[in-house]
Design a protein around this nucleic acid. Structure first.
Lengths: 335, 335
DNA sequence: AACTTGAATGAAAGCGCTTTCAATAGATGC
DNA sequence: GCATCTATTGAAAGCGCTTTCATTCAAGTT
């Protein structure tokens, strides 16, 4: 499909009076050339407006200078921030980000993995550790580094946070405040090990405190503000409604606050709410949200750095980033 | 770098007892093969776990099945939503999205354009119409379709919204409410034609109403909540402070409300605030934000569709999507 | 002065696929 | 019955680059 005009490496070579090999070296390994030759080649390339063909380079060298990333969705403050951090870190090394989203479907993720691997990405970033055996097999057969984020497993290098701890910190904060009936609104648990871990962490803390988290005090919702509202509504309509709520992500927690507000229940005096994420926005809603802050940007940066290390043969270990409770105005003592 | 194992097209051909050409056809033009042959080839491919090499395909065919997108940043609800919409539309056609961000720097955008074009994207999406002449030249020489979003110019196909009208609608709403001193907080105007157009639209409406928008009633800030707060603070500290504020984007407007709140000024009774964007969040802050709603997701979808049309040789025209004022609780009458 | 060595460059063989161009073989038309 | 199609398939020439492997030549070495 490429039309007549495009300047190719051999044109530059002819113009500069050198062999194609020399031009190739001028691009990828300039230190191999004499200053004089290098300057001449560069001048020709610049004058002709030469742009190396990435596909040809990738085919010949086996490296595409491209990293793939598959996230549940780009339309989320969380993943958007992580990807932005990744992208800007990768750009510094001359790598580009090829993105795909699966919107919560394991099959779509498998398809994306196939597609990205087929495109010859030099590395792949995925979210969470849960996926079908076939997808895992594909990843293991892939000849490129894989980095999991948020949650890891023993199989791949990962940049994780302790989701269980995050859930626990949220619960313990409320327990410490004297709450005895604590509910939780999470996103879909299916194909989402992050949410499951947070729920498990909260539940463990509640059980240890002798409170427990019975099923009717847990509501599983879509990860949207509306989901948060719906979850909150469900829990508040119980005969013995909770006095405090944990949101599996900040967005859900904010939705909970909103629903409470709509029902004339004041937060935190009538209902304490704590989130998990530490969105910028959460500090700015009213009342400001107590939340377990996760270093999202760091996840992206570190995932990129880990991938860069692995790509160039340097070792890289799985990392776990710290999480931290940030107490703001949406929680208060009870009883 | 590729190691021994990877199955290639010729392996499948041998296994299926056909020529490489036939396998290639089985992948890209199955209708050319007899059902029997096709089935045999597919079975072999499946059994061997064959994954076509994207770089080789791209090199041989001149198409990479990849679309590039360059946005100011991924870490923004706006661009994240547009990209998600684009990505999911493209995925349906088997295309992948290669993303880059320039974070407000024209030079970074030029670099990204070079990089993506070099990678052989089959089409390119850009935000806004303002860029250096060199970048424009590069785009014009590119043999792939270019689609601008948000703002267009005569040079390229575009999927736009009327930013000027958005600014005007925001201003006219406040004017209609009786406000006589109206300020505006925008993001950086440099390398951001969207913000400039919104400012211009608001200013035009204010001038027509005999009010005008003197420079000291306009504050240029970073596009963050903190920027909104700072801008609001600046304007409220004037000797004759405004009674209403327009935010160049919702985030700035929300920052304004927050600053007002922090200063004990009630919104909307003490200060009316209107935004431009229609973020989901804006309906959920307190008070809910009056804003000019922009169809962000549609921009992404349409940009993808336009690109798909152009890529396959179908015609596609520049589109302008409607904007709409959504009145909520952050604005009220004055005087 | 003959011998290494290292730096700079070129020649040429692919990388794994797509795509003309031909060839073959039934099917169709007159 | 022979020319003409049409549907299938194969052969082979690249796509534009990278990368051994050689070669050349100047600088050290002994």
């Amino acid at each position: 499909m490429r039309q007549g005009g495009r300047i190719k490496l051999s044109d530059v070579a002819r113009d500069a009076g050198v062999s194609p090999a020399t031009v190739s070296r001028a691009i990828a390994q300039p230190h191999l050339l004499s200053e004089e030759t290098l300057a001449r080649v560069r001048a020709s390339a610049l004058r002709l407006g030469y742009l190396p063909d990435g596909a040809a380079r990738a085919l010949a060298s086996g490296r595409s200078m491209t990293i793939g990333a598959i996230v549940p969705t780009l339309d989320s403050a969380i993943f958007a921030r992580a990807l932005q951090a990744m992208q800007s870190t990768l750009a510094q090394e001359g790598f580009l980000l090829l993105v795909a989203s699966h919107e919560g479907h394991a099959a779509a993720e498998a398809q994306a993995v196939r597609s990205l691997l087929g495109r010859g990405v030099d590395g792949l970033m995925l979210v969470g550790a849960e996926r079908s055996p076939e997808t895992v097999a594909m990843l293991k057969e892939a000849r490129v580094p894989i980095v999991l984020t948020w949650c890891g497993d023993g199989n791949f290098t990962a940049v994780t946070i302790d989701n269980t701890l995050a859930g626990r910190l949220a619960a313990e904060h409320l327990i410490g405040l004297g709450h005895r009936r604590i509910g939780m609104v999470t996103g879909q648990l299916r194909f989402n090990d992050r949410q499951r871990a947070r729920l498990a962490g909260a539940r463990a803390a509640l059980v240890e405190a002798g409170l427990g988290l019975p099923d009717q005090l847990h509501s599983e919702q879509a990860v949207t503000l509306a989901g948060g509202r719906a979850g909150c509504a469900t829990l508040l309509e119980l005969d013995d409604p909770p006095t405090a709520l944990i949101g599996g992500i900040d967005l859900l927690a904010i939705g909970c606050m909103e629903e409470a507000h709509a029902r004339g229940i004041a937060v935190p005096s009538g209902l304490s709410v704590v989130g998990i994420d530490g969105l910028d926005m959460s500090a700015h809603v009213s009342p400001s949200l107590t939340t377990v802050h996760l270093p999202i940007g760091r996840i992206g940066t570190l995932a990129a750095e880990t991938l860069m290390a692995l790509v160039s043969g340097r070792p890289a270990a799985t990392t776990m980033l710290p999480v931290e409770l940030v107490v703001r105005r949406s929680t208060t003592g009870f009883g």
